[in-house]
Each structure stands twice: as C-alpha cells, then as structure tokens.
Write a protein that binds this DNA or RNA. Structure first.
Lengths: 238, 238
DNA sequence: CAAACTTAGTGTAAAAAACACACATTCTTA
DNA sequence: TAAGAATGTGTGTTTTTTACACTAAGTTTG
C-alpha cells in the first residue's frame, strides 16, 4: 500500500500515488456492412455527447487483464472466450480532464451474431461502423487507430478472424472479413486455395438457407486442430 | 487533479488515485558477444541484490515517452536519437511490494560503441548478456522477454538493427547482429544479396584496420534515403 | 619469404510461393 | 423458363526463396 503522509519526504512519495489507471476496450464486431465498434456517448465534461470507447478505472487490486474482461462483459455480455489483446498504454499528462489518468488500451473481437443487447443490463452502448465515428472524446480516435493497426497485423499471423464470424460461415464471408480488416480486395481463387490448404476448416456439409442465389457451403473453424498444429510448430500465415 | 477527501463518495473516487505508474526500459546493446542489456542491482526489499531493469516512477505531469527517455538518458547517457518503443503495460496487482505500481515497458537500442560510462553520473548500471541474467527482480524477466520478442518482429520490418551497430560497420557484423536477434543462422550470400538490393547502404570505400585476416569493406546506413523511400511507400523487409 | 591461417566476397540453378485470370454451376425470382 | 446473383473451381507465369563452394586479400608463423 502507498505510504502515509508522515513527513515531507513521504508526502513527495505519496504524490506519485495520485494517478489513476483505466482500461479502454475497442470492442469489435463484423457484419455484412463491415467492422463495427461498440461505443457510448460520453458524459464527461468537455466531451459530452461525443462517442467514446468503453472503459473503466481499474479497481485497486484488480489485474489489468481482468479489468478489461470486466468492461467487455459489462457492455457486450460476453466476457470469457472472447479474443482480447492489450495494445498500448496512452498516458499523455493532459489526456483526461479529471486528473492524471493513464489508460491501457485493449481490443477484443466478438461474434456480432451472438450479441444480445438484453443481456447487457444498463449499457447504452451501440455498434457503429468504424468510419462513421467522427471526432471521438478524449484521445479515443488515436486509441482506435492503434488497435485496428494491431488487428491488421495479427489477423495475418493468427487465426483470429474467426472470432468475428458466426460459428458457421461461408468462404465468401471469411474473405470479405479479411478484406474489411486489411482494407484491400483479395483474389477469390487464391484466397480459397490458401485457406483450404491449411486444413483448419471443417466442411459442415450444410448450405446457406434463404439466399436469393446459389447457396454457399458452410464451414467452421477447427479450434482443436489449430491448437494441436500450433503446438507442433505450425504457424498460421495469410 | 484528483478530488480531495471531502465526503465518503469522494474518498472512494480518491481510492482510485492511489496507484503509481512507472516505466521500465530494456536498454539493449550489441557487441561481438551478442545482445547486452543494461541492468542494475535491486535495492528493494524482497529483491535486494537481484538484477533489475532500469526504471523510474513517472513524474506527476510527465508524458510516458518522456519518462522513458529520462530513464534512458540517466543511465546510458544517450537520450535522444535513440530508438525507443513502447511494448506493453505490466500491471498485476501484486507485482510491486510497495503498493500498486503499474509499469509501462519500453525497449531501446543503443550503439555500444558510443557508450561512455563516465557520462552517466551516479549510475551503477552494467551491461550483461541477456542469457546470463538468471532470475531477475520483480517481473523483469517477463518484461525482458516481451521486449525481445517485439524487437525480433520489428527488426524484420524496420531498419532498426543499425541502431545497435557502430556508424561504420561490415556486412558480417550486420549479419551476426541479425543472427543474434533472430536466434538463427543466416546464409551469407542470400543475406548480402537481399540487404544490398535495398540500396540503403553506402559503401564508404574504407576497410577495417588491424584485423588478422582479409579486411572487410565498411558501410553506413543511409538514413535520408530510407526516409525518402519510406515516404514513397517502400517498406523494409528482411 | 613461403606456407598456413582467417575471414571476405561472389553467382547460379532448383524449388516454392505468389499472382493473374474466366467460365460453368446452382439456386431464386419474375 | 429465362434472367439474375453469387458460388465454386485449375492452370500457366512470374517472383521470391533457398541451397550451395570456391577464390581473394590480408596477417601470422616457421
């Protein structure tokens, strides 16, 4: 625990225990219209009404990662079994109007198909497309950009794209997810060749229903197989 | 500034302003014997005598990056013009015996050839090979590993290896630096072919002196050219 | 001063990976 | 039953990566 103020020297030390630490989560989802972020309207003075990321101060003896999970769970209803990664600490001395608050940015990937706003009591958060956010409160635009850049790199080297898709998905959905994240068009045949050759997808022998065109085959990601291959030195590369 | 304790509610808020934030720097150097880290013997109770990274609490209104530079400068004598990158925040609630201290880890790359211990007044830090450190104080082994992993990735995508070499270097030195960082042997001809084909090295038309074998040509890294190429979309890849 | 030592410096061929590219198929709806 | 919409599939070309061994230039030693 911090020292008490018993003399001048101690008071100085105590000065160092006057910062707060928060986590801010870039909670990302994906649907036919692209990448979405869960945001909320700020209630903090100079930023009232602006969109902000979801975050909270870290409880006094809470681990960083647990704080991020708590925030995620409160607003998305899904805390565990969701991809969550720390990205960067943002700590400019003047970034928060209430005092010195350093924030640790995380991003997480959730399946929008599983999202159910009724399970998130009292959260007024909404999903917005990442390009319709405008100027956000605090330094949250900067945080968002840092997280998306990180995602862009990671999605090529780990099979985390699947965390944004429904359990059952088509190859076209998978491809358009990659296109949305990477911000570039990919060649259909080459994409399929590569992803199929990794042997990480299970053909569910089912097809889409209720689409006004030829229905596509459905696949799922084989988590167990990936873990096994990974432990043998295989590395996902797209 | 944090609220004063004027009522119970405020006291609770104040509780959140009782953490301290520090930076810890993994200051890396390179010589013929491989990668070195600048470390110091801990004076903090359960870790007394163990090696620890160089760090300090962040001053109340100091930017994160500035705090890292200050630490770097104090112990290495070179603050500016040194590669410095934030890696990760470490914040387990029990990681520091004095209270809740969250630390932001940075790593930096310095030219050992420029290091002059006399310019770092009152620093008792020493350079140790990264594999002769044993169990370090706090969670510093974990921090060190995270930083070296980051360096390993970065060194392939940015020309930062040069920050660890003298201004004038031979291709063999450059290669053995890469081998040390990546932890694998590289093929001499392929390495040279690749690095030369980027046109980022200037042949200084000089050779090594006082070596007991055929002297190698000396090169320097062309910083300006790299910046220019980078701004035109070129990206370093090794 | 010749022989031995040590590291520097150089090119080519084979294999693998990346890329470009177009049409027949299957379902729905009008 | 014809038109529309998205699915699914293979090959040849180019580029990149990899593997690999000997001569050159200096120093040291006998």
């Amino acid at each position: 625990m911090p020292a008490k103020n018993i003399n001048t020297e101690m008071t100085q030390i105590d000065d160092y225990f006057k910062s707060a630490i928060s986590v801010d989560c870039v909670i990302l989802g994906f649907d036919a219209n692209g990448l979405k972020v869960l945001v909320i309207k700020s209630q903090v003075d100079p930023f009232i009404g602006m969109w902000t990321l979801l975050g909270d101060l870290i409880h006094p003896s809470e681990h960083l990662h647990d704080a991020a999970k708590r925030v995620l769970n409160k607003h998305s209803g899904m805390g565990d079994a969701v991809y969550l990664e720390q990205v960067e600490a943002f700590g400019n001395a003047d970034r928060h109007p209430l005092g010195r608050v350093i924030t640790i940015a995380y991003y997480s990937l959730v399946k929008l198909s599983d999202y159910d706003s009724s399970t998130t009591e009292n959260s007024t958060a909404v999903w917005k497309s990442i390009d319709e956010l405008g100027k956000m409160g605090f330094d949250h635009n900067e945080i968002l950009v840092a997280c998306i850049q990180r995602l862009r790199r990671r999605v090529r080297e780990r099979p985390i794209g699947f965390d944004l898709l429904p359990h059952k998905f088509t190859l076209t959905q998978l491809q358009s997810l990659y296109e949305a994240v990477l911000g570039e068009k990919l060649d259909k045949r080459n994409f399929r060749k590569k992803i199929i050759s990794m042997n990480l997808l299970v053909d569910l022998k089912e097809t889409q229903k209720e689409v006004a065109h030829r229905p596509a085959k459905l696949y799922k990601f084989d988590e167990e197989k990936y873990k096994k291959l990974e432990s043998e030195g295989f590395s996902f590369e797209l």
